[in-house]
Design a protein around this nucleic acid. Structure first.
Lengths: 221, 221
DNA sequence: TGATTCTGTGACCACTTTGTGACCAACTCA
DNA sequence: TGAGTTGGTCACAAAGTGGTCACAGAATCA
């Protein structure tokens, strides 16, 4: 997936390039509005990150120009933070507007959010150790092992635990998120039991902290 | 267009209701997480505005529950503003995250931005492997095979699946899009059955992932 | 206007999923 | 030290799911 970063601040450009490459994106960039449009035509990026204060052609003009012919997601990154300016940017066709300074982690999360909406990216897979969870097919995949298929409730539980890393998730939080209509501890312990049986040959397991909750952790070697 | 506002602060609720009605939205609301899910099922809103700190069931549980089955846009409105919390909200399936306090004008601009991306029309022609869908004539064409003519509902389903690539589309999402007025799983499984019969000689087929949904995939050779 | 197609519905079936109850060991607390 | 709680285990049965088939009314077509 290719990102066009349009930014004249070279320090920020470097930080963003590094972060996005580490996330697996291919990165191209431009330092002024005119070059941005040229790059857009030649590189055909999946998403554009667009500063507004640019030499040669301002960012809003770039945004308007792209949006006249293309549906490519655009996120504006700007120091201008008044409501009027945010609204103008969004109405000019941007999909999101982040005011500087922002954290790279939040930027990549917002990029994923927009890409998810336009159907350009599969949901991110979650990993713990060598185990990888497939959110589309509700599978757990691991090297040298058959994938494990989960039922809806099993998947719901393991996803929650995996999102939380190896930290303990409180019992009542788990119950609320799995059974918003109402569940109880007996149902959860039964579900934990069934899930443990399915993953017993994996590198990960469900640890319980009595009186607190559960965590997904890696088996030690 | 119907908005479900999930907010337990009645002052903010009133302000938002007034603002959104003035913009032409139909507004329904809930003051706690459980009621929110009930309202979601009965009202089938176009978009959800979701506080996180809620009685009965927290907003992240509501968000996750909705997103497991539906692709209705969700914007989180919360006082929690750390990067971690924003990222968690977006990863739990929200389309945007606004921290309180925010201006109603920016909220409506962000709603428009997300809604702009919903229900976009299909590209001109869709292909998967050697099979090509003709949107004007509702045909599937393949080299060395007679074209297959689809009924309106059959075409609607295969187009949805083809837009999604070979990825799994959740059952309820498919139902929402094919029968906006309300469909059910029995209707969908019947439609899938009929469509499978029509494409059984093709290079593509409908794969089901029990408990999740369906995908259009290429037959392997 | 009759023929044909489309669509919603019901039924059957095999299988899976889920909620529940029961039992037990370990732990906590008064 | 006894009562109560909790987490783990096991089995049962109800509910749900996905696939298949056919029926019949509505819609469309020629």
């Amino acid at each position: 997936m290719k990102v066009l970063i349009v930014e004249d601040d070279l320090v920020l450009m470097d930080v963003l390039s590094f972060t996005l490459r580490r996330e697996g994106y291919e990165v191209v960039h431009a330092q002024d509005g005119k070059t941005a449009l040229e790059q857009f035509d030649t590189e055909n990026p999946t998403i554009v990150l667009l500063d507004l204060n640019l030499p040669q052609l301002d960012g809003l003009s770039v945004c308007r120009h792209i949006r006249q012919k293309h549906d490519t997601p655009i996120i504006i990154l700007s120091v201008r933070d008044s409501d009027e300016e945010v609204i103008e940017g969004l109405r000019m066709g941007a999909d999101d507007y982040m005011t500087k300074p922002f954290s790279p982690a939040q930027l990549t999360a917002r990029m994923e959010t927009v890409l998810r909406r336009v159907g350009q990216s599969a949901p991110r897979k979650l990993s713990l150790g060598t185990a990888t969870l497939d959110p589309e097919r509700h599978l757990l995949e691991q090297v040298d092992a058959d994938p494990i298929q989960f039922s809806p409730l099993e998947y719901s539980l393991i996803e929650l635990l995996m999102i939380n890393g190896e930290r303990v998730l409180p019992t009542q939080t788990i119950i609320d998120r799995i059974w918003p209509g109402g569940g109880d501890k007996a149902m959860l312990k039964q579900l934990v039991y069934r899930l443990r049986q399915k993953i017993e040959a994996c590198d990960i397991y469900i640890d319980s902290v009595p009186g607190v909750g559960y965590a997904l952790v890696q088996r030690k070697r």
